[in-house]
């Protein structure tokens, strides 16, 4: 199986509730009762099998029994303690989405070290320097 999250149509950061909801919706769509007199019933059965396998795999990933898709063998025990919104991926701690990659010798660093300048920047409407 490729990516169980893609099979259910959810992101890797989805909450357990979202995953359950997506699973139930798909099961309702491909339920054998919808394909009772339909010659394509075998295709629907195959799809149901895929969906059930994907859901089971996600459960195992979230319990830490399996690495997530794109993870490696070394990270097998690591993911148990990750927050769900991290998606189980390791990120260098200094990487901040709000400020971009870390910079050492520029105006951004001045703002960070001299917080007064940081406040002035904010009072002027913010965004004067990229990190603010």
């Amino acid at each position: 199986m490729n990516d169980p999250y893609a099979v259910l149509g959810v992101s890797q950061n989805a909450t357990d509730e979202e995953i359950k909801r997506a699973y139930r919706e798909l099961v309702r769509k491909y339920h054998p009762d919808n394909y009772r007199d339909n010659p394509l019933g075998d295709l629907a059965e195959q799809k149901m099998k895929e969906i059930n396998e994907a859901y089971d795999k996600i459960q195992r990933i979230r319990r830490g029994e399996e690495p997530p898709p794109g993870g490696n063998a070394h990270s097998n025990g690591y993911y148990q303690n990750q927050q769900p919104n991290n998606g189980g991926y390791y990120r260098p701690p200094q990487y901040n989405y709000n400020s971009g990659p870390p910079r050492q010798n520029d105006a951004c660093d001045c703002c960070v070290k001299l917080w007064a300048l940081d406040c002035c920047c904010e009072c002027m409407g913010g965004d004067l320097i990229r990190c603010c």
Partner: peptide, 10 residues
């Protein structure tokens, strides 16, 4: 119509 919709999902 329900048959057609079920086929579309495949």
């Amino acid at each position: 119509a329900a048959e057609a919709a079920a086929d579309f999902e495949l």
